[in-house]
């Protein structure tokens, strides 16, 4: 009888322990599940925002002041994704075609060799390992217009008789500003080891591509020239000249030098 009571007690104890473990496990599972659900669905702000490093307030030095006369008549906007990778054989080199991190790639290089008073260019392949990559989303703004300081006296011909038009020959349209500011740059993804020079070099291909697009975009010239003609015509009409003829020195946009891309 005593043995029966002990066995019963042992059994009850075992059941209680197992039940206790099951309840605790269920509670943890519920908390874990609820936590994951909350994080996945975003209903609770569980991801703590990274504290941003704040710069000190330092003075701004005015180095130069220049009077200008630039009539901006169109702006151009574009956005590019830039992907660059770093190769092992030379820490400063980048490679624009994407390969997986850690992969070995063959890169074509060139060197020169002097032989019999002539310089020979030798092309060879070198193996290099991809160390890391940097992905940037880069915006750019181009401001197109006329530099009025380039107007010469002979570009403005007033009518000698009533009814004749005033003739204005405007300087060629040019890209007055090509802006890629830090607020236009978003570092989307990066592995370790990218310095400021790498970031600047990474932007060069994007600038090249965007300026090339601007040069080829005929509608940019049309929009800028039409707007310039409207402003100048309005100005002269406001001064009493009914008949105004406006032409341009050139039918292309100047000052869109394509930057050289260092590799």
């Amino acid at each position: 009888m005593a043995m029966d009571i002990t066995t019963k007690n042992m059994r009850a104890l075992l059941i209680n322990v197992l039940l206790g473990i099951a309840i605790v496990a269920a509670v943890f599972a519920a908390i874990g599940g609820g936590w994951s659900l909350a994080k996945y669905t975003g209903i609770l702000p569980l991801k703590k925002a990274k504290k941003a490093l704040v710069i000190d307030k330092t003075p701004i030095t005015v180095e130069h002041i220049k009077a200008i006369g630039e009539l901006v008549t169109a702006t151009w906007y574009d956005e590019q994704v830039i992907l660059v990778q770093k190769l092992r054989y030379s820490p400063d080199s980048t490679f624009v075609k994407r390969v997986k991190e850690g992969e070995v790639v063959k890169v074509i290089k060139q060197t020169t060799k002097k032989k019999n008073n002539t310089t020979e260019i030798i092309t060879y392949e070198e193996a290099a390992k991809v160390l890391g990559e940097l992905v940037i989303i880069q915006d750019a703004h181009g401001r197109i217009g006329i530099n009025m300081a380039k107007m010469k006296p002979e570009n403005l011909v007033f009518p000698k008789k009533d009814g004749m038009p005033v003739q204005i020959k405007l300087p060629a349209l040019e890209c007055l500003d090509f802006i890629m500011n830090p607020t236009d740059t978003e570092v989307f993804s990066e592995s370790e080891g990218w310095n400021l020079d790498d970031l600047k070099k990474a932007m060069a291909p994007a600038e090249l591509e965007m300026k090339t697009k601007m040069k080829k975009d005929k509608s940019l010239f049309d929009t800028a020239s039409k707007s310039a003609q409207e402003v100048v015509t309005q100005l002269f009409r406001a001064a009493g000249y009914e008949n105004v003829q406006v032409v341009f020195e050139s039918d292309e946009i100047k000052n869109l030098e394509i930057p050289s891309v260092e590799q």
């Binding site: 710069i55 009077a67 200008i68 009539l71 008549t73 702006t75 151009w76 929009t223 800028a224 707007s227």
Partner: peptide, 19 residues
Amino acid sequence: AITAMKQLSLVEYRVSKII
């Protein structure tokens, strides 16, 4: 991508700053 505008820029300041 392309916006027409009519702005007359009349002065340019070149400034420098240490961050």
